Amino acid sequence: MHSLALFTRLVAASLRGQARYPGSAIMLTLGQFLATGIELVAVWALFDRFGSVQGWTLGEVALFYGLVNMMFAVADALGRGFDVLGTDFLRTGSFDRLLLRPRPLALQLMAHDVRLSRLGRLLQGAAVLAYATVQGGIAWTPATVALALFAMAGGVALFLGILVLQGTLSFWTVESLEIANVLTYGGVQAAQYPLALYAQWFRRALTFAVPLACVAYYPGLAILGHADPLGAPAWVGWVSPLAGFAFLAAAFGAWRVGVRHYASTGS
C-alpha cells in the first residue's frame, strides 16, 4: 500500500476509535475550546485596559492569534506520536515493532493518535481570524488568502519540527523534557503578539533560532498591509514561511541521528 494511503487509513482508524465515544469526544473538544479561550480573554483584557499597545489594535493582534493557534492545533494533532514516543514506545519496546514495518517511521508516528479534541483549538483560531477580518479591516484577496495558507503550512511544519525534536531527545532521555513545552506552548504564547513588542535578543531568537516570527509575524504584516516597524522589507512576509519547512527538515535530520542511536529496551 502506498504510504500516503496507509497514513490516511491509520488516521481514519484513530478518528473512528474516538468517535465510538461521541460524548467523550465532544466534551474533550469543547474543553480544548474553552481552555484555550482563557488565553484569548487575557489578550482581550490587555487591550480593553490600554486600547492599543505600541500602536497595535486588538483586531490586528487577533490575526496573529488566530493564525498561530490554527497552526499549532494541526501540528499538535499530527505530532502526538512524537510527544509520547518515550513513554509509549521506547520504554515499552513498541518502537521495535515500528522499525519492522516497511513504512516510514515518521508517518507511523504521525498517524498514531490523531486527537479529535484538537479541533477545539482549531475552531477557536478560525473564529478569532474571522473577528480579525472584521475588526482589523482585512481585505482578503486571492494573494493574501494564498499567503495565509502558505503561512499556515509553514507554521504546521515548524511546530511539528519542535515535536519531532522532542521525540528525538527521548532516545537519550526516555522521558520528554519540559523544555519542549517551552518551545511549543510558550512559542504559541509568544507568537500571538507582534514581534516589535519584544526585546532585541528575544526577537532574534524568534526569528533565527525557532523562527516563529517567520510563520506568523511577517506574513501577518503582509496580510494587514502594514510596514514592519523593525524595518524588514515588505517582501519578507511572502517568503518567510519557508523557514518553517527548513526547520522541519533540520528536525528530521536530528531524528535520523536519534534513530541510529536507538538500541532497543534490552528487556
Results as ranks from 00 to 15, higher is better:
4 L>N: 03
4 L>H: 14
5 A>G: 13
9 R>E: 14
9 R>G: 11
16 R>Y: 09
17 G>L: 05
17 G>M: 05
17 G>S: 07
18 Q>T: 01
19 A>M: 08
19 A>K: 07
20 R>Y: 06
20 R>W: 09
21 Y>L: 13
21 Y>R: 02
25 A>D: 04
25 A>N: 01
28 L>F: 07
30 L>N: 01
30 L>P: 00
32 Q>A: 15
34 L>E: 01
34 L>T: 05
34 L>G: 09
35 A>W: 04
36 T>V: 12
38 I>N: 09
40 L>P: 03
41 V>K: 06
41 V>Q: 13
41 V>A: 15
43 V>S: 00
44 W>Q: 09
46 L>F: 14
49 R>I: 01
49 R>D: 11
50 F>P: 07
50 F>E: 15
53 V>H: 01
56 W>L: 09
59 G>C: 14
61 V>G: 07
61 V>R: 02
62 A>C: 09
64 F>A: 13
64 F>V: 01
65 Y>R: 00
65 Y>A: 11
66 G>S: 01
67 L>E: 02
72 F>I: 11
73 A>L: 02
75 A>Y: 09
79 G>C: 13
81 G>F: 02
81 G>Q: 03
82 F>E: 07
82 F>N: 05
87 T>N: 13
90 L>G: 04
90 L>A: 02
94 S>R: 15
98 L>F: 15
99 L>E: 11
99 L>D: 06
101 R>Y: 12
103 R>V: 15
105 L>Y: 02
106 A>F: 03
107 L>H: 00
107 L>P: 04
112 H>C: 00
113 D>Y: 09
115 R>I: 04
118 R>H: 11
118 R>P: 00
119 L>S: 05
120 G>H: 02
121 R>I: 12
121 R>Y: 00
125 G>R: 06
128 V>R: 10
129 L>T: 04
130 A>H: 11
130 A>R: 04
131 Y>D: 11
135 Q>N: 00
135 Q>W: 05
136 G>C: 05
136 G>D: 09
137 G>N: 03
139 A>R: 12
140 W>P: 09
144 T>H: 04
146 A>T: 09
147 L>R: 00
151 A>V: 05
151 A>I: 03
152 M>D: 08
153 A>E: 08
158 L>W: 06
159 F>D: 12
160 L>S: 08
166 Q>C: 08
166 Q>E: 14
167 G>F: 10
170 S>R: 11
172 W>E: 10
173 T>P: 06
174 V>P: 08
174 V>A: 15
177 L>N: 15
178 E>W: 11
184 T>C: 04
184 T>I: 10
188 V>H: 02
191 A>Y: 06
192 Q>E: 07
197 L>C: 12
198 Y>G: 01
198 Y>D: 04
201 W>P: 13
203 R>I: 07
205 A>S: 04
211 P>T: 01
214 C>Q: 12
222 A>F: 02
224 L>Q: 07
225 G>L: 00
228 D>S: 03
230 L>W: 07
230 L>E: 08
232 A>V: 10
233 P>Y: 04
233 P>F: 03
233 P>W: 06
238 W>F: 02
241 P>Q: 05
241 P>D: 03
244 G>Q: 07
244 G>Y: 01
247 F>W: 08
249 A>C: 08
256 R>K: 13
256 R>H: 12
257 V>P: 06
258 G>L: 01
260 R>M: 12
260 R>P: 05
261 H>Y: 10
266 G>A: 08
